[in-house]
Amino acid sequence: MTTILVADDDADIRDLVSFKLEQAGYRVVAVGDGVQALDAVRAELPDLAVLDLMMPGLSGLDVCAQIRREPASATLPVIMLTARVQEQDVATGFATGADDYVTKPFSPRELLSRVQAVLARVPVAATAP
């Protein structure tokens, strides 16, 4: 089963994203900060990560950069979920290695579509839940 890591310090967002993804048949590992996110990446080796940009401790950008540095997770697809919509923020997100960017407030349905689209681009990983 395709596993997706969801990291967001906002419990509402975390629950909404998890609910939508689980409903679509994915297995979800949800955490509330950047340190837990990195731990989960190492422990669970998910197929995709949805990271909030602004988290206490390690930000989503920090987590993404670390994911890219570690060989085991270097190719893990990452979608950034953030309230920051400045052009520069988006550019920084992509420069750090994010595969896609979703802005808050977000549409759960759109997020699911993006998750599916990013997973479909991954050559080996499971593309269906």
Partner: peptide, 12 residues
Amino acid sequence: VALLAKVRGEGH
């Protein structure tokens, strides 16, 4: 009410 600030589209 708190959810209003977090979603857009059909959920909103």
